[in-house]
C-alpha cells in the first residue's frame, strides 16, 4: 500500500487514540484545576475515588445496575432471538422492528418519558427503574448479536442430540447452549457495557441515592470542582485499554503460532489448526 495512505492512516489513528491518554497523567495531578501539565503528582485522586462514598456508591450502583441489566436483557433477548431466527410467524417484521426501536429512538427522548412514567410508578431513584430503562437500551444490540450467532448455528446437531436420546431440555443444556456460549457471553457483555456507560437516562432518573457512575462523572465535569473525576476517567480508560489488549492477545498468539507452524513444518502446524 501507498506510503502516503499509510502515513495518513497513522496520523488519523493518533488523533483517534491520543486525546484519551491525557487522562492518565491528569489522574495523578496534585492540582484541583484542569491544568496540564500538572504542577505536581499525587495518588490522592485514586484514594478519593476508591474511598469517598460520593464515588464508591455510584461505582457500586453502576455495577449492580449493569448486572441487573444483563439478566433482564438476556431474559428477553434470548427467547426473542430464537423466535426471530427459528420461526416464521405473522407480524415477524413488526416484532423485529419493535425490538430495534430502542436503538432508533434518541435516548434523551426516552429520558423524559422515563422521568414522567417512573415518577408515577415511584421507580425514580430506584435500581429497578434504571435497570428496566437500560435493558430497553441494551436489547437491540444484544438481540442482533444473538440472532447473528443463531443464524450460523447448524440445527442438525440438535436433531442429532435428540435422535441419540436427549430430551429437548437436555439438548439445549448440553448442545445448543454450550455451542452458542460465546455469543451469549458477548451479548451479555454488550448489555453490561451499554448500561455501565449510559449517561443520559442515568442522569435524569437515577437520582442522588442511586446515582450511576456516569451521572456522578457528568456532574463532576459540569461543576469542575472535584478532581476525583480524573481518577475515575483514568480508571475507566485503563479498564478499556486492558480489555482491548486482552482481546488482542489471542490474535497475536495465534499469529505467532502460525508463524511457528510455517517454519517448523508439520509438527507445529497442529496447534495452529486447533486454535483457529
Amino acid at each position: 500500500m501507498n506510503v502516503w495512505i499509510r502515513s495518513l492512516a497513522i496520523l488519523i489513528a493518533a488523533f483517534v487514540a491520543a486525546p484519551m491518554f491525557i487522562v492518565i497523567p491528569m489522574s495523578f495531578s496534585s492540582a484541583a484545576s484542569l491544568a496540564f501539565p500538572p504542577p505536581g503528582y499525587t495518588l490522592q485522586n485514586y484514594v478519593n475515588f476508591f474511598s469517598d462514598p460520593n464515588w464508591t456508591q455510584p461505582l457500586t450502583n453502576s455495577l449492580l445496575i449493569g448486572l441487573g441489566t444483563v439478566c433482564m436483557t438476556m431474559l428477553v433477548a434470548v427467547p426473542a432471538s430464537f423466535a426471530l431466527v427459528r420461526h416464521v410467524f405473522i407480524g415477524r417484521t413488526v416484532f423485529n422492528l419493535l425490538i430495534m426501536l430502542p436503538m432508533i429512538v434518541p435516548t434523551i427522548v426516552m429520558a423524559i418519558g422515563y422521568y414522567i412514567y417512573f415518577g408515577q410508578l415511584r421507580l425514580v431513584q430506584s435500581y429497578l427503574g434504571v435497570i428496566l430503562a437500560h435493558s430497553c437500551i441494551a436489547l437491540p444490540m444484544s438481540t442482533l448479536i444473538l440472532t447473528a450467532a443463531l443464524k450460523g448455528f447448524d440445527r442438525s446437531v440438535e436433531r442429532a442430540a435428540m435422535n441419540l436420546g436427549a430430551s429437548p431440555f437436555t439438548t439445549f443444556r448440553l448442545i445448543t447452549f454450550p455451542i452458542l456460549r460465546p455469543a451469549f457471553t458477548v451479548a451479555g457483555l454488550f448489555a453490561f457495557i451499554a448500561s455501565f456507560d449510559e449517561a443520559v437516562i442515568g442522569l435524569f432518573i437515577s437520582g442522588r441515592d442511586k446515582a450511576t457512575l456516569p451521572r456522578q462523572m457528568f456532574n463532576a465535569v459540569r461543576q469542575e470542582a472535584d478532581p476525583t473525576i480524573s481518577a475515575a476517567s483514568s480508571f475507566l480508560f485503563l479498564l478499556v485499554l486492558a480489555g482491548v489488549c486482552i482481546w488482542l492477545a489471542p490474535q497475536l498468539v495465534r499469529r505467532r503460532t502460525r508463524l511457528l507452524g510455517q517454519t517448523d513444518g508439520n509438527g507445529a502446524a497442529q496447534p495452529a489448526a486447533a486454535t483457529s
Binding site: 486525546p19 487522562v23 482491548v244
Partner: peptide, 21 residues
C-alpha cells in the same frame, strides 16, 4: 485496535479529556 479503544471508551471519559486538552 486503536478504533476499538476509542469505541469502547466512555463518552464522559473522552469529554473530560477534551476539557483538559
Amino acid at each position: 485496535t486503536v478504533v476499538a479503544l476509542s469505541f469502547w471508551t466512555s463518552y464522559l471519559v473522552r469529554t473530560y479529556a477534551w476539557m483538559v486538552i
